[in-house]
Design a protein around this nucleic acid. Structure first.
Length: 679
RNA sequence: GGCGAGGUAGCUCAGCUGGUUAGAGCGCAUGAUUCAUAAUCAUGAGGUCGGCGGUUCAAGCCCGCCUCUCGCUACCA
């Protein structure tokens, strides 16, 4: 195993089109922060890099919607995000942004280097171009009729009515949302990173040399590698981003996925203009990417391929990716406002950053998706932080003030039981390190908590309040040990609960603290003054929890209401002749089977009163094949046949789409002769 | 359909390269205790380890099939 001289820790760059929520914190920033604080405490050389990701089409869309410039949007969210992280004690060495001058330079340079080395391939394709606005159109800027469900207002990349992902070229009657004009097809040149050419070494590097990566990370990489990698476009026609720095690339910018991870590098350079390279190019540097599971392929395959293509950079040593955090049973969703936003939490629970840090670590989605509930939040605060940790510290401090006027009593002769306890808590250090070294923060925090449990047990077993009547010497020893445990808590919890640890150190007047002294019993010299006890945590009452639950319920209701209002406006009028072109008929289902190797497809044999026909329909998720035999359905009889999974589909079976996306078959209210027309 | 991850006590999760009575925290029950934010400490009750079959002297852990959850992917005219 390589001995590393220093560690570069990156945490995923949050996208600056919204604030950050507990999911981000639990999956990425808290784990990264714990790890970084741990290394710093150990005196290791570490750099913690973060920043906002501020380019890309979604930001330009949001800007347009609000009548602002993209810069306005990213300024707004960068500020909110940065403040949230600061408030939660995420101890970045640098938190910058991809709109910075440095980043533009660094990203350009890296592109140029790869370009000069022939690391890209060029390809020309036809894309929609707005002649009035004189620009190529991003998928999202093109609107038209969905080729599937025929609803208008489908975007170039996706139809929101039927959820289908689209290719802009498939849209019927495309229109530019910028000028409203009909775009024309025009040739455009783009650069691609040929991931396929990197497959061989990636395979060796990940699958053979990094078997220690977490199963979810390793598994997903394997899945992608086995599917085969495709070249990926690194540029696009857009005016928000970093201009492609080569001749003949006017109006083109780097694709946001390409420039974003380079932000890690740029932000390092911004902080350390002269020494940044040692953090990125020295083989004795350990590079770690903390990310969420949505970013695995990116940081394990795409970004390493970029770095390798550039040539002078090191590759990540590990990518500790977490799964997702759900909220009260449902997926966290920015657009549905189903989230606990950090900036709101800070208002609702002032000075309780550590409580959230604790809960999110205790319940971190390390091996699978987890659920955050307010009830659990309350329980962990009241039963663990208050009852175990806070209570132990408080009773120790109160006793010290009661019997020794707030001065650390001297430690005299140790009993066997004392020694046994001391040994037990000395072991905590090793247990903590064992877990922290392999990114198991949930278990690590449990170990830190164990220290307080040992303390509570020690007090219960030795009962100093009883001995106070007979042997003050003995009481002094017991409290000395209890105080030493308390001081140890201040070190052990520093990575997890930095605010609490600091508060505790202040209470104890403990100035110097390093990881190495964890487990030692002379952190506090006899005679040292301890400050007046102050509660580390307070109970969270039912009302506060209820308020949060109500807030979420309100969101849920609002979302449901919105669902019912999702009725699309009536479309443009058509001529009667247009309607008569459609040949809609009723048929009887003679046979219905699942299409093999397709999840959504059913293949129907329809009695249409004539020769009969075969139709394939995507409703397998809503209907059992057998249950449809004998039923009558409505179908379009004169749609051009189309092959689906090797089957010729002669028409389209009509169904109604509910606001929640479920499909309901359409049928006549009473049986009719097969083949009769709908008019 | 293919691939990946997961399915272990009421809840949240551990279980190393297969090895005696499967663990922790919370919750619950009983007892002890009062220094402490009715907090703490002890003891205990809770599990056909998703299901079926197989390999093995021995399987939660290995193999096959099935099932459920999550993600990626193909299909949705």
């Amino acid at each position: 195993m390589t001995q590393f001289k220093r560690t570069t820790v990156t945490s995923a760059l949050p996208y600056a089109n919204g604030p950050v929520h507990i999911g981000h914190l639990a999956g990425v920033y808290i784990p990264a922060d714990i790890f970084v604080r741990y290394l710093r405490l150990k005196g290791e050389s570490v750099l913690f890099v973060g920043g906002s990701d501020e380019h890309g089409v979604p930001i330009t869309i949001k800007a347009k919607k609000e009548g602002l410039s993209p810069q306005d949007i990213v300024d707004r969210y960068h500020t909110i995000i940065k403040a949230s992280f600061e408030a939660f004690g995420i101890s970045f060495d640098v938190y910058s942004r991809t709109t910075s001058k440095t980043h533009h330079e660094v990203a350009s340079e890296i592109f140029k280097t790869i370009y000069d080395k022939g690391g890209f391939i060029e390809q020309t394709s036809e894309q929609y171009y707005d002649q009035e606005a004189k620009q190529f159109l991003a998928d999202r800027y093109i609107i038209g009729t969905c080729p599937h469900c025929k609803s208008e207002g489908a975007y170039g990349d996706q139809c929101e009515a039927c959820g289908t992902s689209l290719n802009p070229l498939d849209l019927i009657k495309p229109k530019s949302t910028i000028s409203g004009s009909t775009p024309i097809l025009k040739e455009t040149k783009h650069w691609y990173l040929p991931l396929d050419k990197h497959e061989a070494w990636l395979r060796q590097w990940i699958l053979e040399e990094h078997k220690e990566w977490k199963p979810n990370v390793y598994g997903q990489c394997k899945s992608w590698l086995d599917m085969g990698l495709q070249p990926r476009a690194v540029s696009r026609d857009l005016d928000w981003g970093i201009p492609v720095p080569v001749p003949g690339a006017e109006g083109k910018v780097l694709y946001v996925w390409f420039d974003a991870p380079i932000g890690y590098i740029s932000n390092t350079k911004e902080l350390l203009p002269d020494s940044w390279e040692q953090w990125w190019k020295d083989p004795e540097t350990r590079l770690l990417h903390f990310i969420g599971k949505d970013n695995i392929v990116f940081h394990c395959i795409v970004f390493p391929a970029m770095l390798k293509a550039e040539g002078s950079y090191i590759l990540p040593e590990n990518v500790p990716a977490n799964e997702f955090l759900n909220l009260e049973g449902d997926k966290i969703s920015t657009s549905r406002n189903w989230a606990v936003w950090l900036h709101e939490y800070l208002v609702d629970f002032p000075d309780k950053q550590d409580v959230l840090r604790y809960v999110l670590t205790a319940n971190a989605p390390e091996t699978k998706d987890n659920d955050f509930t307010w009830k659990d939040f309350q329980a962990r605060n009241n039963n663990e932080l208050v009852a175990v940790f806070g209570n132990f510290v408080n009773r120790t401090l109160v006793l010290t003030h009661k019997y020794f006027d707030g001065k650390v009593p001297a430690c005299s002769e140790l009993s066997d039981y004392d020694n046994q306890t001391l040994k037990e808590f000395a072991d905590v250090k090793q247990a903590l390190e064992k877990h922290l070294n392999v990114f198991r923060f949930r278990d690590a925090q449990k170990e830190a908590m164990n220290l307080a449990r040992i303390g509570n047990k020690y007090l219960a077993d030795t009962e100093p309040w009883k001995l106070a009547k007979t042997s003050m010497d003995r009481v002094g020893t017991i409290l000395n040990i209890s105080l030493q445990i308390t001081a140890n808590l201040a070190i052990a919890f520093e990575p997890f609960l930095p605010f609490t640890a600091a508060k505790l150190r202040t209470l104890l007047n403990l100035s110097d603290f390093v990881w190495a002294s964890l487990g030692s019993i002379d952190l506090l010299p006899a005679g040292q003054l301890i400050n007046t006890p102050e509660l580390l945590f307070e109970k969270i009452e039912d009302e506060a929890i209820e308020a949060q639950v109500q807030k979420l319920l309100a969101t849920k209701k609002a979302n449901e209401l919105e669902m019912t209002q999702l009725i699309h406006p009536i479309r443009e009028n058509i001529a009667f002749e247009d309607f008569t072109k459609l040949d809609i008929r009723i048929g009887t289902v003679v046979d219905c089977q699942k299409v093999p190797k397709a999840d959504k497809l059913l293949v129907f044999k329809i009695d249409d009163g004539l020769a009969g026909r075969t139709i394939v329909s995507g409703i397998a998720a809503y209907y059992q094949a057998e249950s449809l035999v004998g039923k009558q359905v409505c179908f379009i009889a004169n749609l051009s046949p189309r092959k689906l999974k090797g089957i010729d589909s002669e028409g389209m079976i009509l169904s109604v789409e509910n606001t929640d996306g479920t499909l309901v078959l359409l049928a006549p209210s009473q049986a009719v002769v097969p083949g009769t027309e709908v008019k």
